[in-house]
């Protein structure tokens, strides 16, 4: 019985430790992660077929 209690205690301690690490990582990623702000304007713009050449040159 005593052995069972010790095992349960160890398991709980490890679970809490794991959750703590996960929480810390989540906080770090939330604060320092990401790639700037998501696009807030712009979007899909229909291309005039005649301007494909101009777009190619812009790419280059």
């Amino acid at each position: 019985m005593c052995n069972y209690d010790a095992l349960m205690f160890t398991m709980m301690r490890r679970a809490i430790f794991g959750m703590g690490i996960a929480g810390l990582m989540a906080i770090v990623l939330r604060i320092f992660g990401g790639d700037g702000s998501a696009p807030q304007s712009g979007g899909w713009r229909e291309i005039d077929p005649a301007s494909l050449g101009d777009l190619s040159r812009q790419h280059e």
Binding site: G36, A38, P39, Q40, G42, R45, P49
Partner: peptide, 11 residues
């Protein structure tokens, strides 16, 4: 119809 994506960041 073809579309190009012009995204613009808020910053």
């Amino acid at each position: 119809p073809l579309f190009s994506f012009d995204g613009k960041s808020a910053q």
